[in-house]
């Protein structure tokens, strides 16, 4: 019994330690930073200083002066200025739209792969993950070329638009380009969990549904779709959350008005060097995502009870 639990710790210990060191502790540091003041030259106002006489490190903060070091001002700024809330809403909208488009595009593809013969299936899965073999930034730069005004794609599109009397459009540096980029990058993360789910479906269920009077539309919505929901949820989590925090794609493909929350956080840390406010934004993002996940879980379990 004892050796069994020892083995359990030996196996789960290293990954647990890794997560504590590189995820839990940094998260706590960040949470703490949200309550501190920015330093004079960026970063954080130091809580310790070297004593000029002894050279030893001394703690500057104490019970008398903690108000000089800890503050709620950063949170105040977040809640007082509507622009941050608006940016949150916009980022959720982008990530949500990306997720929906990914579901619509990935579902038929995942279905097709799941229904292919075994050999073709492996090849198709390989093709889905093939883009991961090249660098993420290179793939986004490729979209800059495709959507750029000089590309065949843009020129043909604008030529066709001209034929029906519509003004030429500029594709790059727009919200459209950002959504295209987000969908492109995240699509495989929707295809794979959906495929893993659909592949396990028992085809006899569809025969049974048809036999009992369901047409193709009813067979999908009454049988396939509800049974695929675990895959849809897994894909949604894998697409929505990374898309929400994405900053590289809006940076490269977006225009001045397609900034996302990720860009602002990056800006706070790297450009403005206002770490406390960057931390506030990160924490608020994490909390909102957790809240949404809790709501979804609650709604899901309620739905199950009702069934």
């Amino acid at each position: 019994m004892k050796s069994k639990s020892l083995a359990k710790w030996l196996i789960s210990g290293p990954p647990l330690l890794y997560l504590v060191l590189f995820f839990a502790i940094p998260s706590l540091i960040m949470a703490f930073a949200a309550f501190r003041f920015p330093g004079d030259y960026g970063g954080l106002l130091p809580l310790t200083a070297a004593n000029p006489d002894t050279g030893a490190t001394e703690l500057l903060i104490n019970f008398g002066n903690w108000r000089d070091f800890l503050t709620l001002e950063n949170f105040q700024r977040f809640f007082e200025e509507p622009i941050y809330f608006e940016l949150f809403v916009k980022s959720f909208w982008y990530a949500g739209l990306t997720t929906v488009i990914c579901i619509v595009l990935a579902y038929p593809l995942a279905w097709l792969i799941a229904r292919s013969p075994k050999k073709t299936r492996d090849l198709l899965v390989l093709l889905v993950i093939l883009p991961f073999w090249s660098n993420f930034l290179i793939r986004v730069y490729a979209w800059m070329i495709i959507l750029g005004p000089q590309s065949y794609f843009s020129r043909s599109l604008n030529y066709l638009l001209g034929l029906v009397g519509i003004e030429p459009v500029s594709l790059l540096f727009s919200q459209f380009a950002v959504i295209v980029g987000l969908v492109y990058v995240h699509l495989p993360f929707m295809v794979l969990p959906l495929y893993a789910n659909l592949e396990k479906h028992d085809m006899a269920l569809l025969d049974a549904a048809q036999d009992l009077g369901a047409n193709a539309w009813q067979r999908f919505w009454k049988v396939t779709w509800p049974l695929s929901l675990p895959g849809v949820w897994a894909g949604t989590a894998l697409v929505f959350i990374p898309a929400l925090g994405m900053f590289a794609i809006p940076d490269l493909l977006g225009g001045t008005n397609s900034m996302m929350i990720g860009n602002l956080i990056k800006q706070q840390y790297l450009d403005s060097r206002d770490w406390p406010f960057g931390s506030v934004l990160s924490i608020m993002l994490t909390l909102t995502v957790l809240l949404l996940a809790a709501l979804a879980g609650w709604a899901g379990s309620r739905g199950k009870d009702k069934r």
């Binding site: 025969d207 048809q210 009992l212």
Partner: peptide, 22 residues
């Protein structure tokens, strides 16, 4: 006449009950 339009129902070997329904 497709299966869904026939007044014929089948009991499948694997039963094929819908697992997400009571």
């Amino acid at each position: 006449v497709p299966p869904e339009k026939r007044p014929v129902h089948t009991v499948f070997q694997s039963y094929a009950l819908f697992p997400h329904m009571t």
